[in-house]
């Protein structure tokens, strides 16, 4: 027989994996809900998943590729920026949605118990559907420009995992902060726009001076984006320095984020 003890928790808590596993069906249906609901009652439906990165690519190509003559590591500017927009669009969307997730589900939080961690993780996983759809456009573009991926493509799953881990860590931190301080929600939205210019999306990371590469690599999305370019459109060798630094900071962020989230979750229902 199940025995549960309810009492005030002190200090920092680890993630209760067993409990999460017991709720995997709920997790599945919440992700399914997010995916199904997103484009309900739209004319374009899932085409929206493609429209966003494609139009950004067109604008960037005109402004940065055309007018500003930004270097694109020797590949055509459209595919250069689109390859970066894939992980970036995923990350920015997952981050803003995850940040707002607890606030959006406040009513459910105050009416029923389940592991709270599921809520910010749902948009992180649901975003992968858009990401996959947007990837198909890249396939078409690679055919058009006759660019073949190289052997580095075997590292692509690793980069995708790093991308998901980064979004998870940021999501755990920001959602737990945002439910108490709603400012975080506004800030996340606007920073995700600014942050894009800090990431090597419209410009190549080769512009970063050699001595700053390790520091810059602490921004995990730098490694992910340059890694995507390296694996898919043969710009540069795999940027292992970025990826190494990015993994360190991403893992750190996810671990601290999980601890912070678990510490704060006991008051979610009270502050929501």
């Amino acid at each position: 027989m199940n025995k549960t003890i309810i009492e005030a928790q002190e200090g920092w808590q680890l993630i209760d994996w067993k409990e999460l596993l017991n709720h995997k069906d709920l997790f599945y249906f919440l992700v399914l809900r997010d995916v199904k609901v997103l484009y309900k009652q739209t004319v374009m439906g899932f085409t929206w998943a493609i429209i966003r990165p494609v139009f950004s690519m067109i604008v960037f190509t005109v402004v940065f590729g055309g007018l500003a003559k930004m270097s694109s590591d020797g590949v055509p500017y459209p595919i250069f920026s689109y390859t970066a927009l894939l992980p970036w669009t995923y990350f920015a969307t997952a981050m803003t949605k995850s940040t707002q997730s607890l606030i959006g589900n406040a009513r459910v939080l105050s009416k029923i118990y389940f592991p709270r961690l599921i809520i910010p993780m749902t948009p992180v996983l649901a975003g992968l559907v858009d990401f996959t759809l947007a990837c198909s456009v890249l396939g078409v573009m690679m055919g058009w420009y006759k660019i073949m991926p190289n052997s580095n493509i075997i590292f692509l799953p690793l980069l995708v995992i790093l991308m998901i881990l980064t979004a998870s860590g940021v999501g755990m931190w920001l959602s737990a902060l945002a439910i108490q301080y709603r400012d975080v929600g506004f800030a996340a939205q606007f920073f995700s726009q600014l942050l894009m210019y800090a990431a090597p999306v419209v410009w190549p990371a080769t512009l970063i001076p050699e001595q700053y590469r390790l520091v810059y690599g602490l921004f995990p999305m730098a490694g992910v984006i340059e890694g995507f370019r390296s694996a898919l459109i043969n710009t540069n060798p795999m940027p292992w320095d970025f990826i190494f630094m990015g993994t360190i900071s991403s893992v750190l962020m996810a671990i601290t984020g999980a601890f912070y989230f678990r510490r704060m979750e006991r008051v979610f229902a009270d502050v929501a």
Partner: peptide, 10 residues
């Protein structure tokens, strides 16, 4: 849904 301040429930 919410934690007690003190006390225990089994």
């Amino acid at each position: 849904i919410t934690e007690p301040t003190s006390g225990k429930v089994e």
